[in-house]
Design a protein around this nucleic acid. Structure first.
Lengths: 239, 239
DNA sequence: CGGAGCTTTGACCACAGTCAAGTACCGTGG
DNA sequence: CCACGGTACTTGACTGTGGTCAAAGCTCCG
């Protein structure tokens, strides 16, 4: 699959997943072509580029085709909460009454398709099957946010970190499943701001996980994982 | 509005809200009639009734028309995280690959419309405007889950509690806005399991808020609020 | 009026948040 | 290629919020 191909990462709520799509929704060649027609390819070469900020007019919806990005909210006291990391196949641009609710920045070079919201809205009304895919994606993201809530509410720092690493290892572009090598695209601060703790706790947690023998730091951003043991530590039922 | 009327509680992402709907999406008389035709009214008389459990086959999607319910996940160690409270106009039945992901129970007498998922799926494909409303509702719930994430990650117990009370006061059936009297339909344990803390912290927080003069306990479940001061305590930007 | 469940209060302790300092890594320019 | 500077990461010490256990009081329903 070419790196700029249109694909939506989601598992559907009602149908069991069939066969080969992996974590991506089935989109026909025609549907892809239709989306490409109303969309616009756009890319950011550098890390840390702001794509849009909270409060800006939400003119576009973005589909991330390559790279990693983060969506965050900054509290009045300067603390930051990352509400989502975006990976290839994710949709960005969550809005409320016409304005973006979060700020989104790149964590690597990124490529997107973007769609004018006003135009997309009309387009989806006349393409129910494609609208359905966006609906399924929203439901998918809602499930993820709820799972993140469970982690934040009931898991301690170490288990939150383990769960985060497991989640990262689901993304084939960043996890070599043959050698079990995970390449993290974000800093300790980013991880901390995502799992609701401090960068020190992240570092100490990595140290403890390494002492337990379930990960091995080849470099600060390159981890060799024992996935089964990591999952056992998280132990949120058996996801 | 009759108590069993079909309505969806959501604020849309792209259009600014117009005039009189308040927190509910505009549904035409025809659209309501269509939904009533494929739906089925159902009610639970007692508090604590389980509507469905995690892992069950997701045969139905539910629309809550009256009452309050909770969706939760129980960890292997017995701890519980409530991921959502449902109020009139909310949609329940979040599923993944054909099974419910959370368990949902009533917190009061409740009435619902329910829809067979297989049938609803087909129905929505042939009624794009109605599908759009469900899409908007999913986006709305995603925003709420993300806001909850910010609270869990960056607010201390007291501010989480204040934020929760403010959220509850948005529901007209339970908040008398004239006298500023909020009637809580859930226990301290429920609140604690929702905001990610313990029932003791909830009680102590209520005590501190009362000492600060921003709430007054008429009974354990009946609170008189000073809404402006409460919002000031939360101070997540200015929502 | 009785009892079960809910709520409140107290005492203790540990996890993790904060501050501070030192180390490793990496890209840049000489 | 190497030196350098800035950023990212790591480690240590201290502190405080909030988690836990225990027990008593309150409320509401039967």
């Amino acid at each position: 699959m070419p790196p700029d191909e249109i694909r939506i990462r989601a598992v559907p709520p009602w149908q069991p997943v069939q066969g080969e799509e992996g974590p991506f929704l089935p989109l026909s060649v025609d549907e892809r072509a239709e989306l490409r027609r109303i969309g616009q390819a756009i890319s950011f070469k550098t890390t840390g580029s702001q794509i849009f900020a909270r409060g800006e007019k939400a003119s576009y919806l973005y589909l991330l085709t390559d790279g990693v990005a983060e969506a965050y909210f900054v509290l009045p006291n300067g603390e930051r909460q990352i509400v989502a990391f975006y990976w290839p196949g994710d949709v960005l641009g969550l809005a409320e009454e016409g304005v973006y609710v979060n700020t989104v920045s790149t964590l690597s070079a990124c490529t997107f398709y973007r769609f004018l919201t006003a135009q997309l809205d009309q387009f989806l009304l006349s393409h129910p099957a494609i609208q359905h895919q966006f609906f399924v994606k929203a439901v998918h993201d809602l499930r993820n946010a709820q799972r993140q809530l469970i982690m934040m509410g009931r898991l301690n720092g170490l288990r939150r970190l383990a769960a985060f690493i497991v989640d990262c290892s689901a993304h084939e572009d960043y996890f070599d499943s043959k050698h079990k090598i995970l390449t993290l695209p974000m800093t300790r601060y980013d991880i901390a701001d995502y799992i609701g703790t401090s960068s020190e706790v992240v570092t100490r947690g990595l140290g403890r996980l390494e002492a337990m023998g379930v990960i091995h730091r080849l470099s600060p951003r390159t981890l060799e994982l024992k996935t089964a043991e990591l999952r056992a530590i998280v132990n949120l039922a058996d996801y």
